[in-house]
Design a protein around this nucleic acid. Sequence first.
DNA 1: CGCATAATTGACGGTTTTCAAGCACTGTGG
DNA 2: CCACAGTGCTTGAAAACCGTCAATTATGCG
Lengths: 254, 254
Amino acid sequence: MDKFFSNIHSDRRGVPEHSDSTSELECKECGLDPVCAVLDYAEESSGIPEGILLRRLPVRRGETLFCQGDRFHSIYAVKSGSFKTLMLHPGRVNQVIGFHFPGELIGVEALSLNSYSCSARALQQSSVCELSIARLPESGKPAAVLYASIIKLLGREVTFNHQLIASLVHQSAEQRLCGFLLSLSKRLTQRGFSGREFTLTMSRTDIGSYLGLASETVSRVLTRLNRSGAIRLRRKRILVLDRIALQEMVSGKD
Amino acid sequence: MDKFFSNIHSDRRGVPEHSDSTSELECKECGLDPVCAVLDYAEESSGIPEGILLRRLPVRRGETLFCQGDRFHSIYAVKSGSFKTLMLHPGRVNQVIGFHFPGELIGVEALSLNSYSCSARALQQSSVCELSIARLPESGKPAAVLYASIIKLLGREVTFNHQLIASLVHQSAEQRLCGFLLSLSKRLTQRGFSGREFTLTMSRTDIGSYLGLASETVSRVLTRLNRSGAIRLRRKRILVLDRIALQEMVSGKD
DNA sequence: CGCATAATTGACGGTTTTCAAGCACTGTGG
DNA sequence: CCACAGTGCTTGAAAACCGTCAATTATGCG
């Protein structure tokens, strides 16, 4: 009765060689191909690093491509099979950040960092191409510096978003809001402003929209935090009294 | 009794000129500074585009810096004040994607696209620097092509994450799962695989972790979708029978 | 064949949303 | 200077949704 599952190739006429993600992907359909092409024809004088491109390495099911915290050395393109990337939270359950299928890249978020911010593990028998770029060259040329800075900016944005996804999706309203306040505080401090006392320039509705909460919930949690003494709140003005309490709430300790 | 709020400058001794986000930021503390520096000293031969850097433009509260869908032309650095970026969903409430404070950049996610994927609006009286880069130059040099491709890859990653955040945070379990299945289907199709019939290579627990759901909920929703006839499911094998039904569930129509 | 792991299904409880009402603040105009 | 309207914020009560716990079934691997 379940003929739909009897033959996975049944409706694959007219489609190229690979019909399931276990078969290998053509280079021209791979996300790394533009980069590959450059490396194939790269001259020594081009400023491209001595990158070593390793083609179609097999990876067994459950095997780890790289670990969170490992020194960054390569980005990978999936050729066949599939992978998951996950972040390990101290004291908490691991969080899956993404899934990666043939033609997609893994490890790009580390391009602007010194180490990987997540781990990658094969979900099945797979293969990858590995492009070893310990770091991008920063020759003195203005164009190269410009490009390098842009890549750094984008990489930071990706990392930030990964952490945001990881923290938002599994946390309670209280945890999200405490995390949000600490994040604001940290960012303001980094730019030379006070991270202890600042203004919530956005509305409760905006905060709710950002954190995936109803504006009423934002309001309720803020007043709760105010009553508990962790913050002092009046209208849009906020004063962080007990940073430790907020941090403990984010990590889930009560 | 609320002396904490009587004078926002009370505990700001020893800190530079700007003490609240309404005052302007020094260039050396701005995220765009490395780029600025390059442009200041750029030579014609450097390959850097005829970028026009507009410094410290005032933006009134509520004013829009750029709109979702606008042709990409510039990235911005916040000099004072604050901004929100938001995605407009057809038929649904708008979703705030991020907040931006002095020294932070807005619009980087469009670097590798033709148009902005979100809108940016000032939360208060603010000022920005605007760097007009309609697009990055792709000279024939291998290094430039390599850099350009990497920037494109990162930009795509950022865009994907923005959409993920927007969709995950505010949606029900059913909406998240339908969105997930459609996303998988689309990605597989793009690489030449069947988007109609494929294997969920990851476990229910992995899916739950990724979507912020308990594995039991993933299981329940999948069986519900199976019973409703939208999909046919057996173990890890899935067949999309009614793509329209899934799409309607994601948009919330019932 | 049997164990270990994964998936399903049911019942219950907690958190958050929704709906609704009242309150506080802002800015405008008399 | 005050009254008023408009908006945003707070607070309450009820219901929906999802997570947890627990039991059962199915599957994969040795």
